[in-house]
Structures are given as structure tokens and as C-alpha cells.
Design a protein around this nucleic acid. Structure first.
Length: 783
RNA sequence: GCUCGGGUGGCGGAACUGGUAUACGCACAGGACUUAAAAUCCUGGGCCCGUAAGGGAUUGAGGGUUCAAUUCCCUCCCCGAGCACCA
């Protein structure tokens, strides 16, 4: 008898799977397709962490399971290798990001293979491969041609550490999503994708995703933040303007202000207006060309101070309100015809609604607080206006357009050129990809320009339209570009003529199961839905929603419940676990830790339980005194477990799959068990611990890979017992348990229950008032 | 503040549609094997009282519905996630 030697067994089967291409997914199979996906990793220098292992293991388990259920499963993998982390890593080590990326990929690939994932390696993709990013650029041009990619100068989020612009989604609590640095505002020329134009479609699509977790849908919904309301115009009245009440504003035309409100019915209570410090009217009224305000300098000072504050301070609801009245101008409440003052205050945000509100201090807490502080009149309404009669219905969104350019080196060049004569011109398809040039210095410049701007021979080009001199766009795309469509490429990863063949897309899409982290809900998951819906509108992708089912996983924490991090030195490396216990133990233990969606703490102690279990299973099979027949208990336990494990796998309850297998083994290991039943045990073990399962099957004399065996079905006729266990309670407390032949009558059960010593002891002669009998389960005597 | 999750032994966690709470695993205790230790195997309790048999309590706290509540309803507390001066 050989001792269980995971290192040896695992290597053997990994070689076997590789040689036999066991997990290659066929594009032309008759079997029903299943597209299983886990978010692809970016190849960081630290390699895989436990969180990765959790997600990829879950995907691997269901992939192996569905293959045994007769489905054609595609479980692909690739590398999301552009972006800041890869670039920062390269800079830190003084190397070319291309080289470090290659090295890191090789390392992680080795890790993946050592854990035995059933990826279809023939479909491996890499976002930094020009053959891949050619199509990322091509798809970007589709947005450009549709008018959904535009260039604009504006205040954007700027990370001073990474020295690049960030999208709104990348700012978490006022800090950079990557490095945690406090984000600043900076005025910069940027490329944007008009995701706001797809706000309604993104919302509508959520309604057709019944298999997504509510929490994820809700988060996206909140992020989009759709609100119905009205825009109402307020005419202005100037005191200082020599033109008197000619209703001309500082811009010469707009002698009115438009506010956004969700409560037009409270307009009779609107006693003042408030403008955001960024409001265009305020900017104009305080500039050198205009002289309508009596306190221009005071207002200007307030506005400048507000702009200097960072986002966090601005939007802190607990701080005291500040503001300045715009003296010399009044607004007319269109409902009451009364003159009301206009204030500028930073509790009104420039980027939401119209940047101006009508303040109704009688019916809004914030307006109330403001009115109290500055002694403005407050009207408590008893009657409300007909909300339909005011203003124009208007919908606003919290969602902002997606800042799509980065001032960094390691990304896809944006395939556009700037021509003096023709302006912005798209690079024609036959000139794609625009290859990222070699540079001497990858360091971000911090000036708002990418390091590409200094590569003259690359920047200077000819205009595809007029043939004259032109300059290339030097900004690169954000990390999210390549990952916004990678799942499409898996359907046809080597296509040189198109991003993917339409027939293959029709065959594989949508992704049936998408595993990934909760942290991508309003980043990657929202972005890729946007791309997919747009591409569907363009007739380029057959389905509107890319992911049928989303399965998020919780984080793996350190033993003390804190996050694993290098700085704390509490990171557990998957490699060391594989080395010490084997891949099967690592896989099984990660699943056993707790429910897939919950955050769980890693425990070095607990892993021994799983290691012992596989050891015992090995001992059991290799010492096999397999009998010709199974005992009834073995058959019953086996089929009960088949039923339970199948149900649990269908519901991604991996932790209870593991415990069910442990229970089953405990029950049958000392009983008469046939080889056939042992093989069924190995089959059930296979998705979770495939190496040992394959080896056991071989030991039992089966040939080939278990992957091609058929998943066992529970025989319902074997599930029932010949006896039933009836719990006897008195007043709801358990007193006894009766084991009776099936079909014992209620009367007989009652009689027997009343004879029980412990029941008698509790009754102490009292007569039962009521007896409740639950068929075959329980008898409750009430006294 | 709002929205969504969650709170079960010393620890991770399990529990169908309301029907034996604590499966499975870790840790712990006792035993077997061993010169010994480790590993392994067997057994056990889990909070309180009791030598024991046994009894009682118990699913964040309090109340309710029910023959019966971890499960349903109400009030509150705590933890996690998301949103937030969003008009």
C-alpha cells in the first residue's frame, strides 16, 4: 500500500490533462454549452493570493461538475495585464513593464497549473498583446464613430500619486481606488465615453437579470441614481444693473435661472434660491467683464474657498452650512410672484441637477438649517401646489461620463490623430493596431501628458485623411478597456479578421456563470455591461446582457479577521499550502471555510482537518476490502449524499458539499462497500479534489479521466428507511424518540408514546389536553 | 441618515416549507499503539446544577403569534457592505 503522496499524484494528473487536452472546449459540440468565467487576473508580481484561489476554485468545481452533467463547458483564462499596478511594479523594479508582465504571467500560470484548474489553455488571451489590443482599439473607434467618445476639458479626478486622471467609479470615498491617495480636482483635456447616454439601458437591463444577486443590482442602480423631477425657471431682477429690470443677465441673455427639484408641489414655500459655487452664472457674475453684484469680491472669495476644498470636506453632511448672498439681484418666484434672495452655498453641488435649487426651508431639512442660520424666511405649507403645472419634467442621473484617458505609459494607445486641418481623425482599421512604442522613461510626467508625448518619432505622423502632418493622441486607455470585452474574445481568441466570429459569439454567449469580487460591481461589471449593450445596438454582439448569472465571493481574511496585506505580514501564500498539503487540500479547504459569498478568516489550524480527510479516504480505498455487494446502509447513505451534493453544487454551496462527503465517508468506511460505490464516491469528490479522485478511480480499475464519466444520479427508491423515527415531545420539549416500522398508525404511536417512562414521569398523571402528530416525524403531547 | 446583508458552543460554521438546534471540521479531555514523542485510531463533553442517573437554560436583547420559532411579526442593540448636504 502506497502512502498518499499529493505532490506525486497531482503532478501526474496535471500532465495527463495537459497531454490529453481534457478541458478543451469545442465550438461545434452537440452538447448544451456552458460558459463559466471568473474575472481574469492582472499579473502582479506577488502572484496569486487566497482570494483568487477561492474564485478560480469555485469556477473550476462547477466547470468539472457540468462537464460530468453532459455539458460542453468553456472555462477560459487570460491576463488583464495593462494598467497602473503592472506599470508601477515595473517602475519600482527599474524594468520594462513588458518584461515584468511576461515574467509575472509565467509565474502565475505555473501557480494556476499547480492547483490543477481545468482552464482551456488554447484560449488564453493577454490584453497587452497587439493582436488583442488591436481589437480593443477597433472597438473604441466604434464608440468614436457613434459619437459616444468625445474630447473635453473639464475638472477631473486626479490622483497625485499615480499622476493620472481617474473616472468617478475609481474614486472610493474621495480616494484613489488603487493606491488610496486622496484625489484632487484638476482641469484637463480628456477623452470621455458617454456612458450617461446608456444610463436608462443599463437600468432597464438589470430588470432582465433575475439570476443576479439583489445587492449587486441595487448597487448599480444606486450608482446610476436616476431621479424624476422638474426643471423650473426663475426670472431675475437686478438692482444695480443700470438697465434696470430689463431682465438681462451677466451673460447678456440668461436673465433667468433654472433649478431642478423633485418637489415642484412645494414651490409656494420656495423662499430663496441657492447656486453651487461652480454654477456658470456665478462664474460669469464674478468675472471682470460683469458688474451686477454689489458684493462681487465677497462672493468671489467664497467661491474660491469652496473650490479649494476637497470633495470629502465639501460633501460632509455633518458640517455647518456656509454661504453668501448674491447682493443686487433677486429672483421672482413664479408661483407667488414675490422677490426672493439668491445665495451661493457649497451644499449645492455643481455636478448634480442644474447646480441650482429652489430652497424650501419648510419642507427640506438642509434648506431649513440654512435658512435658520442666515435668518431667511421659512414657510410651512398647509396646501401644496399641483406639481404637474410647474416647469418641465426632467430626469437627472448621478452617473457621470466615463473619463477614458490616462496620462500613463502602460495602456492601449488611443487610436486617434490630431491634424491641424482635419482636427481629430480616427486611425483606419488597416493601420491598427497602433502599437505602443518603446520609451526610455516610463515614469508618469505629472504634467497631464503621458510619457508617450516625448517620443517624437511616434507622435509625429501623417493624417490618414489629408496626408498632412499630424500628431498622435498620446493618452492611453484605462485598465478597464481590455477587460470590458475580454469574455467576447474567448469565443474566438485567435481571429485575425474580427474581434470574434459572429457564429462563435452566437454559440457561446452569454456568459452563463460569472464569478468575481463584489468590489467590481460599479467598475468592471458596469463598464462591460455598457460596452456589451452598445455593441449589441451596433449589431456586433448577439446578446444585450453579457452575464446571465453573477456569483460574487467574500474576501479571505487573515486569522484575526483583518485584511491580508504585505505590510501587515499576514499574507498566506497558496504556493506554500500546495507544497505542504497539496492542491486538493488547498482547494477543498478554501471551499470548506464557509459560504462562498461570505467573508471568511483563514486558519492555518483548520486546514489539517481537510488534509486528514483526504488521507483517510486514500487509506480507505487503497486498503480496499471492496465487497461484491453494498450493505443497505451504504446504499442509503450513498444515494442520500448524491442527492444532497448535487443540490448543493447547483446552488454553489460548496462548504456543505465538503461536509456531506466527510459525513458519507464517516458512515460507510467501516461497512461492506463495493468498488462501484467507491467509484461513485470518487466521482463526487472529483470536482473539488480532482487529482486524488482520478488516482482513486484508477486504483479501482477505471480507465481514462473521471471528467468523462457521468455524474451519478440518486435512486429515490433507496433513500427511504424501513423504520421511522418519531420524536415525542411534552409541551414542545423532547422526551423520547420512538423507532417504529414504517406505516405504524397514529393510534399505535400515541399508545406507545404514552407508555414511555420519561413521558410518564413528566405527565405525573395529568391528562393530555391535546396531541399533535406530524406524519412520521413528531408527536407533541400538550398538558 | 438611507438601503442591503448578517449576529448560532472556545473557534470556522450546519439546520428542508416553522417540527430532535449545534451536522461537518478545528481546538480540548480520556484511552489504544509506542521505550518515548509525533502521527494514527477509538471514545467523550460542550453553558449551569449533579459523583452519576438526570434536570434546567440556550441561536445579539426584549416582546408577540403558535402545540412547536435560529426560522414568522414588532421594538431595540451590535457588526459588515454600499450610498449620502443628490435638491
Amino acid at each position: 500500500m502506497k502512502k498518499y503522496n499529493p505532490q506525486q499524484i497531482e503532478k501526474k494528473w496535471q500532465e495527463y490533462w495537459k497531454t490529453n487536452k481534457t478541458f478543451a472546449a469545442s465550438d461545434s459540440s452537440d452538447k448544451p454549452k456552458k460558459f463559466v468565467l471568473m474575472e481574469f487576473p492582472y499579473p502582479s508580481g506577488d502572484g496569486l493570493h487566497m482570494g483568487h484561489v477561492r474564485g478560480y476554485t469555485a469556477g473550476d468545481v462547477v466547470s468539472r461538475y457540468y462537464r460530468m452533467q453532459g455539458q460542453e463547458v468553456m472555462y477560459p483564462i487570460g491576463w488583464d495585464a495593462f494598467g497602473l499596478p503592472a506599470e508601477n511594479y515595473a517602475i519600482k523594479h527599474g524594468k520594462d513593464p513588458k518584461d515584468t508582465t511576461t515574467t509575472n504571467i509565467a509565474n502565475i500560470k505555473k501557480q494556476f497549473q499547480s492547483i490543477g484548474y481545468s482552464f482551456d489553455w488554447d484560449r488564453e488571451i493577454n490584453t497587452t498583446d497587439p493582436e488583442y489590443y488591436k481589437w480593443t482599439q477597433w472597438l473604441f473607434l466604434k464608440f468614436y464613430e457613434a459619437g459616444l467618445a468625445y474630447e473635453a476639458t473639464g475638472l477631473i479626478n486626479w490622483c497625485p500619486k499615480d499622476k493620472t486622471g481617474l473616472s468617478n467609479e475609481e474614486v472610493i470615498n474621495g480616494a484613489c481606488e488603487r493606491c488610496g491617495t486622496k484625489v484632487e480636482k484638476k482641469e484637463l483635456r480628456q477623452w470621455y465615453l458617454k456612458i450617461t447616454e446608456y444610463a436608462d439601458k443599463l437600468l432597464e437591463g438589470l430588470k432582465h437579470l433575475p439570476e443576479w444577486p439583489e445587492a449587486v443590482k441595487l448597487q448599480q442602480e444606486n450608482w446610476i441614481g436616476k431621479k424624476e423631477g422638474s426643471e423650473i425657471e426663475f426670472y431675475l431682477d437686478f438692482k444695480k444693473n443700470p438697465a434696470g429690470n430689463d431682465r438681462r443677465g451677466p451673460d447678456g441673455e440668461k436673465a433667468k435661472l433654472t433649478v431642478f427639484t423633485t418637489r415642484p408641489d412645494t414651490i409656494f414655500g420656495a423662499t430663496f434660491l441657492v447656486l453651487a459655487p461652480e454654477h456658470l452664472w456665478v462664474t460669469l457674475a464674478t468675472d471682470a467683464d460683469h458688474d451686477v453684484l454689489e458684493n462681487k469680491e465677497e462672493v468671489k472669495a467664497y467661491v474660491d474657498a469652496a473650490k479649494a476644498k476637497d470633495e470629502m470636506d465639501r460633501t460632509d453632511a455633518t458640517k455647518e452650512k456656509t454661504g453668501v448672498e448674491l447682493k443686487g439681484v433677486k429672483a421672482i418666484n413664479p408661483a407667488t410672484n414675490e422677490e426672493i434672495p439668491i445665495w451661493v452655498a457649497d451644499y449645492v453641488l455643481g455636478g448634480y441637477g442644474t447646480g441650482a435649487i429652489m430652497a424650501v426651508p419648510g419642507h427640506d431639512e438642509r434648506d431649513h438649517e440654512f435658512a435658520e442660520k442666515f435668518n431667511l424666511s421659512i414657510i410651512e405649507l398647509t396646501e401644496f401646489a399641483d406639481g404637474n403645472k410647474f416647469g418641465t419634467p426632467k430626469t437627472t442621473y448621478r452617473l457621470r461620463d466615463w473619463v477614458f484617458s490616462r496620462q500613463r505609459y502602460w495602456g492601449e494607445p488611443i487610436p486617434l490623430v490630431h491634424c491641424e486641418k482635419d482636427g481629430v481623425v480616427a486611425v483606419p482599421e488597416d493601420q491598427l493596431p497602433v502599437v505602443l512604442p518603446e520609451v526610455k522613461d516610463y515614469e508618469p510626467t505629472g504634467t497631464g501628458e503621458s510619457p508617450l508625448a516625448v517620443v517624437d518619432e511616434w507622435v509625429n505622423t501623417t493624417c490618414p485623411k489629408c496626408g498632412g502632418a499630424a500628431k498622435r493622441e498620446t493618452n492611453t486607455m484605462p485598465q478597464w478597456a481590455g477587460s470590458s470585452w475580454y469574455y467576447l474574445r474567448y469565443a474566438d481568441p485567435h481571429n485575425a479578421q474580427a474581434f470574434a466570429d459572429q457564429e462563435k459569439l452566437k454559440h457561446w454567449l452569454p456568459v452563463d456563470l460569472y464569478f468575481g469580487g463584489m468590489e467590481h460591481t460599479t467598475l468592471h461589471l458596469l463598464y462591460s455591461r455598457f460596452w456589451n449593450i452598445f455593441l449589441h445596438d451596433q449589431g456586433l454582439v448577439p446578446v444585450s446582457e453579457p452575464y446571465t448569472k453573477r456569483i460574487p465571493h467574500g474576501i479571505i481574511l487573515a486569522a484575526d479577521g483583518s485584511k491580508m496585506s504585505k505590510s501587515k505580514g499576514n499574507v498566506v501564500n497558496p504556493d506554500s499550502i500546495v507544497k505542504e498539503f497539496g492542491a486538493d487540500v488547498l482547494r477543498m479547504y478554501e471551499l470548506f471555510l464557509g459560504p462562498h459569498e461570505a467573508s471568511v478568516s483563514w486558519s492555518d489550524k483548520g486546514i489539517i482537518g481537510v488534509a486528514r480527510f483526504l488521507d483517510r479516504v486514500w487509506f480507505w480505498v487503497s486498503n480496499a476490502k471492496a465487497t461484491d455487494e453494498d450493505s443497505d446502509e451504504v446504499l442509503r447513505a450513498l444515494h442520500t449524499t448524491i442527492k444532497k451534493v448535487t443540490e448543493d453544487l447547483e446552488n454553489y454551496k460548496f462548504n456543505t458539499v465538503v461536509s456531506s462527503l466527510m459525513s458519507l465517508h464517516n458512515e460507510i468506511k467501516d461497512q461492506s462497500c463495493s468498488k462501484a460505490s467507491m467509484l461513485v464516491f470518487a466521482q463526487m469528490l472529483y470536482p473539488i479534489a480532482p487529482h486524488i479522485a482520478e488516482e482513486i478511480a484508477e486504483l479501482l480499475g477505471s480507465e481514462g479521466s473521471l471528467q468523462f464519466s457521468t455524474w451519478p444520479t440518486a435512486d429515490e427508491s433507496l433513500l427511504g428507511a424501513e423504520t421511522m423515527k418519531v420524536v415525542v415531545q411534552v409541551n414542545g420539549k423532547v422526551k423520547d424518540t420512538l423507532v417504529l416500522p414504517l406505516g405504524t398508525s397514529e393510534e399505535e404511536i400515541k399508545t406507545q408514546a404514552m407508555q414511555s417512562e420519561r413521558v410518564q414521569a413528566t405527565l405525573t398523571g395529568k391528562e393530555p389536553q391535546r396531541v399533535i402528530y406530524v406524519e412520521g416525524k413528531l408527536l407533541n403531547i400538550v398538558i
